[in-house]
Amino acid sequence: MSLEALIAILGMAAVTFAIRAGGLLLANRLPTTGFVASWMKHVPGAVLAALVAPAILAGGAAEAIAAAATALIYLVSRNLFAAMLGGVLAVYLARLALGA
């Protein structure tokens, strides 16, 4: 394992634990409603949207078809694993069909 990988993992662990501990220690001073609370609540969804959108845009027609298939499978099955496998299979078949 490289030193930079170790630093990255320990850094992630330290930051994450500081947040978990910080919530407890600052419990009486943290807003539970209002703007800041709402901001924190929306972060995970916005981060995932920020991950997905450029990736789909950078792909071609095969990736767009596969993204639609992934979404459909997830909405029907509510199963992450099935959606991932379906998406991978869809991109494989779409690339074959489109010759990409």
């Binding site: 850094g11 930051v15 947040i19």
Partner: peptide, 25 residues
């Protein structure tokens, strides 16, 4: 490895836990 942005991103994504652990006090 973009160590700094990996650590910052972890902090931002996990920020919501601040409110969760606060309610466990």
């Amino acid at each position: 490895l973009p160590v700094l942005s990996i650590v910052i991103a972890a902090g931002i994504v996990n920020l919501r836990m601040l409110l969760m652990s606060a309610t466990l006090r």
